[in-house]
Amino acid sequence: MTDTTLNVDHVTKRYGSSSTEVTAVKDVSLSVKPGEIVLIMGPSGSGKTTLLSMLGALLKPTEGEIHLNGTIISALSEKHLPDIRLKQFGFIFQDFNLLSALTALENVSIVAELAGMKGVAARKKSAELLADLGLAGRLNFLPEKLSGGEKQRVAIARALINNPTLILADEPTANLDSKIGHEIMRLLRQIAKEQNRSVVIVSHDQRIKDIADHVLWLEDGQFKEIVSMAIDPVCGMSVEREKAFHLSLNGMDYYFCAKGCRDEFAADAEKYQQTNEASF
């Protein structure tokens, strides 16, 4: 347990009461380690956003507990939540949600100031962070003057400015074209790995599966099966182990996107064997 950042323990969320009651999340458990990227996928209405909101202490579970670095955040009173949200979580949204009256720099620094940093220091740190994300030339732009990808990078800077333990993103690429979306995802992965922060992403986007360490499939408020990913050694595609074509060879497991790749591999295994170390 010591190396888990986040522990979700038999959490249920019900909205409404009696006749209008909806169970959005049913008895879900999950844990996230430092530096780990968890992707939650699932059909619309399956409870992804509800679960993410509970992870971020924006919503209280009806049942179950959520632990963050040993604190039971699901039991904290409303009074203590703003501070936890401010310092422990970084939120990234589908529609960026920047403050329209503030510049890119101010959008980031205001969050540092909320956490108690002085204005000048907050602006300096924000400027550095934005520069790291390639926005050095956009500091004084209002959000309306930024492209979607730039806005989302400002949002990422805002999420990172207080050194959060956990970054929570709901459909972060849904409003971006696929190339920019991929860049954003790579950025999130880099942040997770280099800064050892945990990242939980909710997405419909099949294309981002390859950056996740774990992919979870939520359906009707419950995880159907834990999907772990592997890379097809022949074509290099990311595939779900459980759904892939499988081959065991010399005590090793190999996964393929299609029967054709498996056949190709079987025909000349040595040629591909070096590359399959990359599975994660």
Partner: peptide, 18 residues
């Protein structure tokens, strides 16, 4: 008009008094 922005600030951790 800025309801959403105030909601975002709340989610990010701005207390009501701010």
């Amino acid at each position: 008009e800025r309801q959403r922005e105030y909601g975002v600030l709340k989610a990010i951790g701005a207390p009501n008094r701010v």
